[in-house]
Each structure stands twice: as C-alpha cells, then as structure tokens.
C-alpha cells in the first residue's frame, strides 16, 4: 500500500477519534468517583441556578463518556464528533466567561471541585486545549471515515475498499 493522501486520511481519522474519544472518556470517568467535587466544580462557574447545578454535575460525565466511547469504537462518528464539538464550545464559553469575570477557579475539566490551591489559574492552557479539540472534532465531523472503526461510512477510493467495508 502506497502512503498517500488517500491512504493516510482514514488513519488520521482514526488518530483523531482516539485522541478526542480518549480525552472525553478520561474527563468523564474522573468526575464520577467524587460527585460532591463535581457539584462544586459546576457551581464554581456561577452560571447555573443552584437547582440545575447537581443534575448537570452528575449528568455531564455520562454524556462525555458516551460520546467518548462512540468515538473510540468508531460508531456514529459524525454524530459523536458534532456532539463533542458542541460540548467543547460550551466548555470554552464557560471557561472564557470565568476568565473574563476574573474568577479564580480550576476548570474542573478532569475532576476535582474547581478549587485552585496555589491561587494560580490556568485559563490560557485550558482555552488552548479546548480550542484545539474543537478543531479536531470539526475535522472529524467533516471527514468521519476512518480505519479500525466498528461502524460508519466506508472509505471511498481506496484499493482495499471491499475488505475495509467488510471490516467496518
């Protein structure tokens, strides 16, 4: 198999799926063990009314894990990448607004209660990371076909299309 754009594309799609899916599964899973911290992390943004804080804190990890698993397995890739992009934009808005309002919080992206100990916030890093992931998610939504996927579209124009289609 020659290494050209047609053969590399689907493998890039696989890489994108694994990165994005991995981040979502890990981020979701880390929020499950300490629900009290998850509640504090959501509340720390001071964007939601108190009655919505707990349901969002408890429900968000489930959505994150579901989206992440779909991407890792390669099923409903386009739907999952669009969902990931939407979630990431919501996170970006949240972090950006906390930054703009001068709140001293941790984004709580990977668990913990949103508290910063050293008094050092990490907004630029958090925004950069989310923005980079949005790009990955959008590229994946545009070209969802990839290798090592359980479902989804077949990769057109490749020499081993038949074999690929059977394996998908």
């Amino acid at each position: 198999m020659r290494w050209n754009a047609a053969t590399a594309g689907p493998w890039l799609g696989t890489a994108a799926r694994l990165v994005l899916g991995g981040v979502f599964v890990v981020a979701g899973a880390l929020k499950v063990p300490d629900p009290g911290a998850a509640v504090r992390a959501v509340r720390a943004y001071r964007l939601l009314p108190e009655s919505l804080v707990a349901p969002v804190a408890f429900g968000l990890p489930v959505i994150e894990i579901a989206v992440g698993l779909a991407l890792l397995l390669g099923v409903f890739v386009r739907t999952a990448s669009i969902a990931a992009a939407v979630l990431l934009v919501v996170f970006l808005v949240g972090v950006g607004s906390a930054w703009a309002r001068g709140l001293r919080i941790d984004c709580g992206c990977f668990g913990n209660g949103g508290e910063v100990t050293a008094g050092e916030t990490a907004y630029p890093l958090e925004v950069l990371r989310d923005a980079a992931l949005v790009v990955v998610a959008l590229l994946l939504a545009r070209w969802p076909a990839s290798r090592l996927a359980l479902g989804g579209r077949s990769v057109a124009g490749t020499t081993d299309r038949k074999e690929y289609s059977r394996a998908r």
């Binding site: 504090r40 720390a44 919080i105 941790d106 209660g113 008094g119």
Partner: peptide
C-alpha cells in the same frame, strides 16, 4: 466544604 462553595470560595 459544600457551604464554602456556596459562599463562592474556590481558592
């Protein structure tokens, strides 16, 4: 700990 969060203390 939860009360501190409700008081808006995050650091």
């Amino acid at each position: 700990t939860d009360q501190a969060s409700k008081d808006g203390v995050t650091a």
